[in-house]
Design a protein around this nucleic acid. Structure first.
Length: 781
RNA sequence: GGACGGUUAGCUCAGCUGGUAGAGCGUCUCGUUUACACCGAGAAGGUCAUAGGUUCGAGUCCUAUACCGUCCACCA
């Protein structure tokens, strides 16, 4: 045995081996099932190091639970549904869905995702995920479509779904309604314009606005009720410049006295406050912008202009009329659509909603029923639930997604939904099973599709639908949901909502929230910053084990900064393991443990076995609490310091002098079990070592098919351990002495004086210590 | 403005139910040829963000403050 470990050869080799031998196959008939609701990564984005980071955490748990005797349901899914995929396809093929038309575009999407899928999945395999890749699910698959539509029908039948003309958040770029959760803030530069309005009573007032193009939509003017200098205006009527509509001056506490002139114009709709006022003060509706960012006929001579052009032209006109009194350049934050960074508008459109605002308290209760790790993450969700102000608008005016299974009667306009056994269905190419109640047989199909979250929120159902009912019942609620904290308001929230609406249950028992991966400066990795590191780069250089080692260092919920030095540490561990096993194997040739060998154990063997047992219990405890970092820490400390630096050094001479079956027994036991404990964290090197040194004797196909040692397989030697600690202490004193004298550990020394509390007990170890520390005589003080 | 985290050695972080600070990396010194220099031994390094309070005693509990981060709200 004299070769070095080469991860570039071994890692792909074992990955193929696991796949071929189905080492991680889920056994649905097992007694103990541990089910994981893994996040399906969006196919539109390349896998980045942040994924490797959080998926490693989940994978460590999956592997740990497996070796603790669970059959682990650990699916792998791909989110290739909806807007993100459409945008990807548009980008790859340099087309827009409007150019291609619906049918061709959907076909192109399907074809494209089929093409990318293998490459996409390959990246995830490389980091050593022990998912069942043969059964990878997709959120656009026929099964997912069927389920999404089925549960849509459930909500519909519960009366939870309604369609209504409502002001919704509208993305003019994507030409679709979007959800509250899809908003993002963006700083932009703009002008704050002071515009003069005339009152019917003849007075003049100044109003500041960033959106003069909305003047035709102005429906009222607001001042603060306690603003003494302005509240004399309340009740009066103002005339909107250029467009000349007369609007009332009202009061509302939301007005900020110190902002602009303290007088606000309210338009339908400039922002969410306008909408609030529209409902609260029962204002008229005056829409002047169209869905594609233009002004409509209400804007009179400005109609047909884009918002941007109209803004300029209207400002010009105001200037001519001497009504634009001043302009200030400001930078302010606006709401943009997170997928395309376009400023959103609020437009009344016909949309589908899930009614759930009335359930806020129930949602809060559900949130409390789940076990949050770390605990404080719960307040993120609760905070979000408390702040909900819209029902869930789930219709999207896009093409690539799951169709809403509904039609409208051509005659009486009634909504007709599909029948259960028609699913999955596209209403565009199918008809309802029965006539409308009015007798008509002509229908207009719904063209809207469902929001991606409408499907993602069903991942537990998508995964469990593959098994028969008994099993899916047993595995639900799922054991664990791992995810990062950025999608608590999306995925986690919606999954909880669906689970409550359909089953009055929580979707999973534990929520494991991992942090973010930051770059070395502590900034979030993002394409726009150009600081994204790809896992491939790291794996090529240091190996997947090293990457996993590093990822396992962070505590749950904590962000982790990328640090190349720390990844090197992982590689060092891999090398150290390899060398320790290579060395030990010299002393284990043809050895197979027998019961009687236990009787040959010396105190130093008992000491290390005892240490191992204590460490193992601690390791289990930490792993059970999802404290990967701490589990690894105790294991590292044992392996590196106790086992390698002390034990191996102590037994060296004993092992070299003769085949000592006591030493062999301890060595074999420790090595094999250390390997087991390391295997969830660094699966490749542990497999390599197992196959190289143990497979022949143990016969089991892979290290990953072992169970961890149970309590009865651990050791308990408190007395010998306590005694031998004296010897360790003495050895340390001699090391220190030699280091201070600047001489080699191996250099022979005449006499060393050591101090000890227990003069009696150290006596029996002195010959051993003198031998390994190269000291002729140890004097005890 | 609201909620939640964080602030401990040069760096990254541990420090459970309160009892005079720990690890890894880095630095410095020394040691190699029967596992490993991707190694071993040793050393130096901290008034635990600040100010109060509780206590015999606080990094650890309480209250303020500052700074950093995340989410939410506001953004006329």
């Amino acid at each position: 045995m004299n070769k070095d470990y080469d991860f570039t050869i071994s890692e792909p080799k074992w990955q193929e081996f696991w796949e071929k031998e189905k080492i991680f196959a889920f056994n649905p008939k097992a007694k103990k099932i541990f089910s994981i609701d893994t996040p399906p990564p969006t196919m539109s984005g390349k896998m980045h190091l942040g994924h490797a980071f959080s998926y490693t955490h989940t994978d460590i748990t999956a592997r740990y639970k497996r070796m603790k005797g669970f059959s682990v349901l650990y699916p792998f899914g791909v989110d290739n549904n909806g807007l993100p995929t459409e945008r990807l396809v548009e980008k790859i093929h340099n087309v827009t869905l409007f150019q291609l038309g619906r049918e061709k575009f959907v076909q192109l999407c399907q074809k494209t995702i089929q093409g990318i899928l293998p490459d996409f999945i390959f990246g995830w395999k490389r980091i050593g995920l022990s998912s069942d890749f043969d059964n990878a699910y997709s959120t656009i698959s026929p099964e997912a479509q069927k389920l999404s539509q089925l549960y849509f029908l459930d909500l519909y039948n519960q009366g939870r779904i309604y369609k209504k003309e409502m002001p919704v958040l509208w993305c003019p770029e994507c030409q679709t309604a979007i959800a509250q959760a899809e908003l993002e803030d963006k700083e932009i530069e703009t002008f704050f314009n002071d515009i003069e309005f005339r009152l019917t009573s003849g007075e003049k007032i100044l109003i500041s606005t960033t959106r003069p193009e909305l003047l035709p939509s102005c429906v009222s003017i607001f001042v603060h009720p306690l603003d003494k200098s302005k509240n004399n205006l309340i009740g009066k009527t103002a005339i909107v410049p250029i467009f000349n509509q007369e609007v009332p001056i009202l009061s509302d506490e939301k007005v900020d006295i110190n902002k602009g002139t303290g007088i606000v114009m309210s338009c339908t709709f400039g922002d969410t406050t306008d909408m609030e006022w529209y409902f609260k003060h029962n204002l008229p509706l005056k829409i002047s912008i169209t869905k594609d960012r233009k002004l409509n006929e209400l804007a009179k001579e400005f109609s047909g202009l884009s918002i941007k052009e109209a803004r300029e032209k209207i400002l010009e006109r105001l200037k001519e009329l001497n009504l634009l009194k001043s302009q200030k350049r400001i930078s302010h934050t606006v709401n943009v659509h997170e997928r395309c960074q376009t400023e959103i508008e609020i437009l009344p459109t016909n949309q589908w909603f899930v009614k759930y605002l009335d359930l806020r308290n129930q949602f809060l209760k559900q949130s409390g029923k789940m076990n949050w790790r770390p605990k404080f993450m719960k307040s993120r969700l609760d905070n979000w639930i408390n702040g909900l102000s819209w029902d869930w608008c789930f219709s999207r005016q896009r093409y690539f997604g799951i169709p809403i299974p509904a039609w409208y009667c051509k005659k009486c306009k009634k909504i007709i939904v599909a029948d259960k056994d028609q699913l999955p269905i596209d209403p565009l190419s199918a008809k309802p099973k029965t006539k409308c109640s009015c007798g008509s047989e002509e229908f207009i199909p719904e063209t809207d599709i469902m929001d991606t979250w409408m499907t993602s929120s069903l991942t537990p159902q998508v995964v469990l639908s593959r098994f028969d009912k008994k099993i899916s019942k047993k595995a639900f609620p799922m054991s664990m949901r791992p995810q990062a904290h950025d999608i608590i308001n999306f995925w986690l929230f919606y999954t909880m909502v669906r689970s409550y609406l359909h089953f009055k249950n929580i979707p999973f028992k534990e929520i494991i929230v991992s942090g973010f991966l930051l770059d070395s400066k502590g900034e979030k990795m993002s394409k726009s910053k150009g600081n994204v590191i790809e896992p491939e780069t790291v794996i090529n250089q240091y190996g997947a084990d090293a990457l996993r080692c590093w990822a396992s260092q962070s505590s749950l919920g904590d962000d982790l900064k990328f640090n190349e030095e720390e990844i090197k540490n992982g590689k060092r561990l891999v090398t150290k393991l390899w060398n320790a096993f290579k060395f030990s194997s010299l002393h284990l040739e043809n050895y197979s443990p027998e019961k009687n060998d236990k009787k040959l154990l010396q105190d130093e063997d008992k000491w290390i076995l005892n240490k191992f047992s204590l460490m193992t219990r601690e390791y289990y405890k930490k792993m059970d609490e999802y404290e990967y970092a701490k589990a690894k820490e105790v294991l590292d400390k044992f392996f590196w310091s106790d086992f390698c630096d002390n034990y191996l050094e102590i037994i060296k001479t004993r092992a070299y002098e003769s085949k000592d079956r006591g030493v062999q027994y301890a060595l074999y036991y420790l090595l094999l079990n250390v390997l087991k404990l390391y295997s969830p964290i660094i699966p490749f090197i542990t497999e390599e070592i197992y196959q190289e040194f143990f497979k022949e004797n143990e016969k089991i196909k892979s290290i990953h098919l072992f169970s961890f040692p149970e309590d009865k397989e651990l050791f308990n030697f408190p007395k010998e351990t306590k005694d031998f600690e004296n010897a360790i202490n003495t050895i340390e004193q001699i090391r220190k002495y030699k280091s201070e004298q600047k001489i080699s550990i191996k250099a022979e020394v005449e006499t060393v004086v050591i101090e000890t509390k227990d003069k009696e007990k150290i006596q029996k170890y002195l010959p051993l210590i003198e031998k390994i520390m190269a000291v002729k005589k140890i004097e005890v003080k």
